[in-house]
Amino acid sequence: MTGSSQILLVLTNFPNDTSARELAEMLVDRRLAACINILQGCTSVYRWQGLTETASEVPVLIKTTRQRYEAVEQAIKSLHPYELPEIIAVPVDNGLSAYLQWIAHETTETDT
């Protein structure tokens, strides 16, 4: 069993729901993530190349493990249209034990 310190919440934003869903389905199908939440759109304000920018984006919350993080990061980068996509991994220090075990189980590679 993987302890809670091995579980990560990975945050990213996509420019639209279609690209967010494409990422989510790919990550779950490949067992790189146990669950992905695609949230309602938001407005992001940020500085990019010396200018203040505003964009409509779709927040994505990815539940995975440290073991699978590198593959998740590579998948996001390969599908993301941005030159520099937001990818932030936050360790999960606490949570419902059964749920954290489920994340670990669902992101374990299998032969089936």
Rank of each mutant, 00 (worst) to 15 (best):
S56C: 15
R66D: 15
T64Q: 13
P85H: 09
I87Q: 03
H80E: 05
R68E: 07
K77M: 06
A71E: 11
N94D: 10
I76P: 01
H80I: 05
Y99V: 01
G50Y: 07
I88S: 05
L84E: 13
T52W: 08
V58G: 05
G50R: 09
N94I: 01
Q74H: 15
W102L: 07
K63L: 01
W102S: 05
L79R: 07
V60Q: 03
K77V: 09
T65G: 00
L96M: 08
I62A: 10
K63S: 02
T52K: 14
A98Q: 04
L100W: 02
S97Q: 11
L84Q: 14
V90M: 05
E83R: 12
E57P: 04
W102H: 03
K77D: 06
Q74W: 13
G95F: 08
P59H: 14
L96I: 14
D93N: 12
A71G: 15
I76Y: 00
T54E: 15
G95E: 02
L61H: 09
T54R: 14
E70D: 13
T52L: 11
S78V: 14
P85K: 07
L51T: 14
I62G: 05
I76W: 00
I87F: 02
A98R: 04
A89R: 06
I76H: 00
S56W: 12
K77W: 07
Q74G: 15
P91K: 03
T65S: 02
V92R: 00
I103C: 04
L61C: 12
G95M: 05
R68F: 00
L84W: 04
Q101D: 15
E86C: 06
L51F: 11
T54I: 09
K77E: 06
V72D: 07
I76K: 00
L61Q: 12
Q74R: 15
L100T: 02
L96R: 01
A55I: 04
I62Y: 07
H80K: 04
L61M: 15
L51W: 15
E57Y: 05
A55E: 14
P59S: 14
Q74N: 13
I103G: 02
I62F: 15
Y82L: 08
T54S: 12
A89Q: 06
V60I: 05
H80V: 01
L79I: 04
A89C: 08
Y99H: 11
L100P: 06
V92A: 07
E70W: 01
T54C: 10
P85F: 04
H80F: 07
R66N: 14
P59C: 06
Q101K: 10
V92S: 07
V72L: 04
A75S: 10
I87Y: 05
A89T: 01
E83C: 07
H80A: 04
K77S: 08
Y82C: 13
T65K: 00
L96K: 08
H80Q: 10
L61S: 09
E70P: 11
V90E: 12
E73H: 14
A71V: 10
L79P: 12
Y99R: 04
Q74K: 15
V58H: 08
A98F: 02
A71F: 14
K63D: 00
N94K: 10
A55C: 10
V58C: 09
S78Q: 10
W102P: 01
I88V: 03
R66G: 13
E53M: 05
I87D: 02
S56G: 12
A75V: 03
I76A: 00
G50L: 06
L61R: 09
Q67T: 06
T64N: 15
L100Y: 02
A71K: 14
L79M: 11
L100S: 03
E53H: 02
